[in-house]
């Protein structure tokens, strides 16, 4: 029935004012003006790219100055150019990519396993009150235990194998992810859960369509921290549990470089570890966080 026609109501037949027009007008008045204009590229360069680049350049300059002032003998403090040479040597030997790749593969696999276990654990603890009361504090405690502390135990249990490395990653990352998810679930407005129930979302559908998306801000923070802990734990494990049987990862490379007293390679490797960490943060987590923020979830409800 079109607007302006008559509708039977409790008062018999009543004229309906041309409500469609009024409504359209209200909508136009109410609607937020079209989203903010895109920031121009030059502004992005100036505000977002320039400062970090300038900071790096400054550090390099200070480093070069320290080198030239010969604060330390050059086998202890190589110049930026020496480190660059160590990097390019690695590149030409073909080991740069394979070493980074070995570590990233381990990190990714370990992190993925931690996500699965941590998410399951978080959901379980969120659902079962008594489990949470029992295990929750242990989980929080584990979160503040540096995962390096597990390396000796893992080496004893699993020997110098991949299992040691993955065990340490899991022990480092699972508590963060589970705790992050729990925090996220705690913050879910009960209204969403009730709305989900009214729509018929029960069991797995409830978790998938309501609980997880609603808990996303906390969950994402947990994932991010979980990744950072995975990467750290991996480096610790590789550094300590280094053996020829294990493929050469960044941690092992670092340990080898130390034993050769190759300071340039040590610094180059630290740089590689740093770059991988920053790259994952920038390329994976930053876009995810922006999306969550855009969905109007973080803080601004409704």
């Amino acid at each position: 029935m079109a607007a302006g026609e008559t509708v039977a109501t409790r008062k018999g037949v009543r004229e309906v004012r041309d409500s469609a027009d009024v409504e359209a007008g209200l909508d136009a008045l109410d609607s937020a003006p079209v989203g903010p204009a895109r920031t121009p590229l030059r502004q992005i360069l100036r505000e977002r790219v320039l400062p970090p680049v300038a900071a790096v350049v400054l550090v390099l300059l200070a480093w070069q100055a320290a080198y030239e002032a010969e604060l330390k003998p050059d086998y202890l403090l190589p110049s930026p150019a020496d480190v660059w040479r160590a990097l390019s040597d690695q590149w030409y030997e073909g080991t740069l990519f394979s070493t980074v790749w070995t570590s990233m593969q381990r990190g990714a696999l370990g992190f993925a396993a931690a996500v699965v276990i941590g998410t399951g654990l978080g959901l379980l603890l969120g659902a079962v009150r008594s489990l949470r009361v029992g295990i929750g504090p242990v989980l929080s405690g584990l979160q503040s235990l540096p995962s390096v502390a597990w390396v000796p135990a893992a080496v004893v249990w699993f020997g110098l194998t991949d299992a040691t490395i993955y065990a340490v990653i899991l022990l480092g990352a699972v508590p963060s992810i589970a705790n992050g998810l729990l925090a996220g679930v705690d913050q879910v407005p009960p209204l969403y859960l009730r709305a989900g129930r009214v729509l018929g979302a029960t069991g797995p559908a409830r978790v998938r369509h309501v609980l997880l998306p609603a808990a996303l801000p906390g969950y994402l923070a947990g994932l991010k921290q979980g990744w950072a802990f995975s990467w750290r734990s991996l480096m610790a494990a590789e550094l300590i549990a280094s053996s020829p049987e294990l493929g050469l990862g960044l941690g092992q490379l670092l340990e080898n470089a130390r034993s050769y007293q190759d300071m340039a390679l040590v610094l180059a490797t630290i740089g590689e570890i740093l770059v991988v960490g920053i790259a994952v943060d920038l390329l994976l987590f930053a876009p995810l966080e922006r999306r969550v923020l855009r969905a109007g979830l973080a803080g601004v409800r409704g």
């Binding site: 209204l191 969403y192 009730r194 709305a195 009214v198 729509l199 018929g200 979302a201 559908a205 369509h209 309501v210 998306p213 609603a214 996303l216 969550v292 969905a295 109007g296 979830l297 409800r301 409704g302």
Partner: peptide, 29 residues
């Protein structure tokens, strides 16, 4: 069918668009 309930506070899911909110209800049906 279970009754539909409309809340005072719209209770739409902010992580979905308006259309997707409705599609979720359809999907669950």
């Amino acid at each position: 069918r279970r009754p539909a309930l409309m809340f005072q506070d719209h209770a739409l899911f902010p992580w979905l668009t308006a259309g997707r909110n409705i599609e979720l209800a359809l999907r669950l049906r």
